[in-house]
Write a protein that binds this DNA or RNA. Structure first.
Lengths: 199, 199
DNA sequence: AGAAAACGTTATCTTAAGATAATAAAAACA
DNA sequence: TGTTTTTATTATCTTAAGATAACGTTTTCT
């Protein structure tokens, strides 16, 4: 991985959340880790504590759950230039209840929990990192809020149509059965919905 | 409302998120507003921007959506000693898509968006308020994450049983048709589920 | 206390989702 | 290139959820 380019790209995509001075940026970068994940390998597995918060520099990942009867249910995706973590596990220091798997060869920029704590506690970066953390959490909170609202106010068909209208990457890049899981239905059911709304 | 007692209680319940020195606390308090909400009145209505983040000192509130065909769908509740806001609207400064209504005579401690911005920008409170905001957002993020996971991995019946096992306040204090909405199903359907699991 | 509203259950009917299996097409791979 | 594997659709059957209405009970209101 070209870490120089990766850093540059990361800084770019951090702008909506935090803008660093050059000095701060150098310090911040000293905490970063860069890893590559081969297709189909795991970033985190259920039962293990997620120790990193990440940024997808290249590639994409899939979040999924394994239910008691062994069914694989996809809950979310992160594409390049998006954050990625088993966030609840990372924050609570509890075992994750989901897996995160690379869907293609993927480059990640990681911040370990320990590094984050150090930055939060540091004189130079602390304040800015608190803000960064707040804005990231708020951003995802709003996303989750939308999603919960969709589950309680809309039918599966309505949720799918909304997703279509949103034009999100998911539609172009993910197989349909993952999308079905994401919408809270079975792949067979989504296939039927698609036929229904075509007529 | 006894604002002295309310402040004391608020400080107590803020502890998991932020611990203020006495000086900081005085300053913080100078930004607070105290209001009482009569039963059935609204804290926020859909279409209006939510300008306050609140804490329920006494009473309880219900969050609900009105769908296009006029159906009222309850999405959430806040009881005493919990936070309360149309958070997405508050954060994004966009019109809310939901209502928040007092279920009984309710006492609220409020922070206006303007006050919060001032605190965040202030020398004395800024850093601590960033952290406070971060921890609150993270807390709710985890709650939402659980809820979304329940929607995609569990059946309505399983969700209800989990709720039963959780022993949450909702069960004791909310009418069943609100609980049904909260679980993403109709009241009639919840009634059937209850009968099913009794046998 | 009496009237009105809200609530929970039940019944009926309709609709759609889950489970499962078969099939065909597309993609991955080796 | 030829072979798996993955994917999407379709069919059948079963199950449960939505819509609606009726009913009795409880709660709220005045």
């Amino acid at each position: 991985m070209d870490t120089l380019k990766a850093k540059y790209n990361f800084r770019e995509h951090l702008q909506p959340f935090v803008v660093f001075t050059n000095d701060e940026w150098e310090l911040f970068c000293s905490y970063l880790e860069f890893i590559s994940l081969k297709k189909k390998t795991y970033f985190i597995e259920a039962g293990k504590v997620c120790n990193h918060f990440g940024f997808v520099n290249k590639g994409s990942v899939r979040y999924f759950h394994l239910t008691n009867d062994g069914t694989d249910i996809t809950g979310y995706f992160s594409f390049e230039n998006e954050f990625m973590s088993s966030y609840t596990s990372f924050l609570k220091r509890e075992p994750a209840n989901n897996y995160i798997q690379a869907l293609e060869d993927t480059e990640l920029i990681l911040i370990s929990h320990k590094s984050l704590q150090e930055m939060l506690a540091s004189e130079k970066l602390g304040h800015k990192m608190e803000r960064f953390g707040r804005l990231v959490a708020e951003y995802y909170l709003c996303c989750y809020d939308d999603r919960v609202t969709a589950f309680i106010t809309q039918s599966p068909e309505e949720r799918y149509i909304k997703l279509l209208e949103s034009g999100r990457d998911i539609l172009r890049r993910m197989p349909q059965h993952y999308i079905a899981n994401f919408l809270g239905i079975t792949p067979v059911s989504l296939s039927r919905i698609r036929r229904r709304i075509l007529v």
